[in-house]
Nucleic acid binder design. Structure first.
Length: 415
RNA sequence: GCCGGGAUGGGGUAGCCUGGUUAUCCUUGGGGACUGUGGAUCCCCGGACGCGCGUUCAAAUCGCGCUCUCGGCCCCA
């Protein structure tokens, strides 16, 4: 027996129905918000990701040389591909450019709860100038999608890179020198952050204030005592979200991100019921296009962990509707088997889902199968019925049977 | 990369410590009883010890290695 590769999954018919259901739901919601779908290759030049995330990422991705000696990798995320696409082909489209995408990504990591080597991401990006409106629209789409899935227990936390950057800048630490400190603060390793800040000449009192800031969480009112452009900015984003009807948004200044391309607002969504891997969505505003050789453009985007979202829905017991077919055509005896296909095909051409016996089973077994599938109706075709150019239509839930003229069958089933 | 629990028909399980019959029970799949009426019942059939090496007269059981899996650490673009 051949086992499936580590960290991958097979999806059976039932599971795929559920997955497609939510996938379609996310697409529809995005279209409602004026976003348009794009798609990029599953493999890319490895350089795309080392440019964005540093040479270290190669250790964590599926990277290899192809037969032509090119350095290739399976994409570990989608934002880099989207921005590459933007720079090469989409830069002349009118802005804001609102795009969404869905697809699988690959990371060479140790699998655990909610973490796989092949996983699925749904995401969106808005390319244009950064305004609180843009950021609110991006968070708003993520929130609307999660709301529509029926998920109840999740928190949206919004922060702003600028708040800590402003404090560090006031203390005399700017630009690249601030990055290592932000990284430690992001990971909440406070002793090392203190040490770095001391080395940078920041007074202990100010350093403590900065660390205290990363612990500020709660409703928008926690910003009331704070001044400065970044705080004002978050207030505006939150006001818009509130007006859009998304009340479950809180402020968390501990959402930091120690990467240089994040420029302003950052946000995360987590579902507390999941285990160690409970973050189901993350995003923020960033500037990446210039890294890939394009003009400098600001964007805001997010990615939803599709698999984790489904896991969260599962733990909450959100019900999934099992799909059924409308009609199962049952031939009575060998003489009418071909006729059964003719009828099934007529139904299918009329857009009615229909199945037909392939196993040459008797009427009893066929009806049993039709009940299990399940099918709403059974269309019983026998010589007796055909004499009057009719079939017997059986409602599988009530057991009620009626003789129906062949010409009326499609109308009867269209309801 | 690190720590621990696992892997027995399609699914769920017993057996393993203490090696030895035809490997248990439930379920699922196919056929039949029922050559024109379903989820019931009865009968029949199919189907498994993750992979490899070793110890042994004999391995699901003991030893070693590997693969996959579940949970946690690290990481998380």
């Amino acid at each position: 027996m051949i086992q499936r590769p580590r960290g991958t999954r097979d999806f059976g018919p039932e599971e795929m129905e559920v997955r497609r259901h939510f996938e379609d739901m996310m697409r529809q919601e995005s279209v409602l918000h004026g976003f348009r779908e794009i798609s990029t290759p599953i493999f890319e030049h490895t350089e795309l990701f080392t440019l964005k995330s540093g040479p270290g990422v190669v250790e964590e991705i599926y990277a290899f040389q192809d037969k032509g000696g090119r350095e290739i990798c399976l994409r570990p995320e989608l934002t880099a591909s989207v921005m590459r696409f933007f720079v090469s082909d989409l830069a002349t489209l009118p802005r804001p450019l609102k795009m969404f995408y869905f697809g699988q990504c690959f990371r060479y990591e140790r699998p655990q709860a909610g973490r796989y080597r092949e996983f699925f991401q749904f995401g969106a990006e808005i390319v244009g100038n950064p305004t609180p409106e843009t950021d609110a629209e991006a968070i708003g789409l993520a929130a609307a999608i999660l709301e529509r899935t029926g998920l109840k227990d999740y928190r949206i936390r919004v922060g702003h890179i600028g708040i800590l950057r402003e404090m560090l800048a006031n203390a005399g630490v700017t630009g690249d020198k601030a990055l290592p400190i932000l990284q430690k603060l992001d990971k909440k390793i406070y002793p090392e952050a203190e040490e770095l800040m001391a080395q940078a000449g920041i007074e202990t009192k100010v350093a403590q204030d900065i660390i205290g800031t990363t612990k500020v969480t709660g409703p928008i009112s926690v910003l009331d005592s704070r001044e400065g452009p970044a705080s004002d900015y978050i207030r505006q984003v939150c006001d818009i979200l509130l007006a859009m009807g998304f009340g479950n948004v809180s402020v968390d200044l501990g959402v930091v991100r120690g990467l240089a391309y994040y420029t302003g607002m950052v946000f995360e969504v987590d579902a507390p019921k999941l285990g160690a891997e409970k973050q189901i969505c993350g995003g923020g505003s960033y500037s990446l296009s210039e890294l890939f050789g394009g003009e400098k453009v600001f964007s805001t985007g997010f990615a939803i962990g599709f698999d984790r979202t489904l896991l969260a829905l599962q733990t909450e017991g959100v019900p999934f509707v099992k799909r059924s077919i409308t009609a199962f055509v049952v031939p009575v005896g060998d003489s009418v088997r071909t006729k059964a296909f003719e009828i099934a095909s007529t139904l299918r051409r009329s857009g009615i889902s229909a199945d037909v016996d392939l196993m040459r089973r008797g009427v009893g077994k066929s009806l049993k199968y039709a009940a299990t599938v399940p099918s709403r109706y059974a269309v019983i075709v026998g010589e007796k019925e055909l004499e009057s150019n009719s079939v017997t239509l059986r409602d599988m839930s009530s057991g009620e049977q009626t003789l129906v003229k062949m010409n009326d069958l499609v109308e009867k089933l269209k309801v």
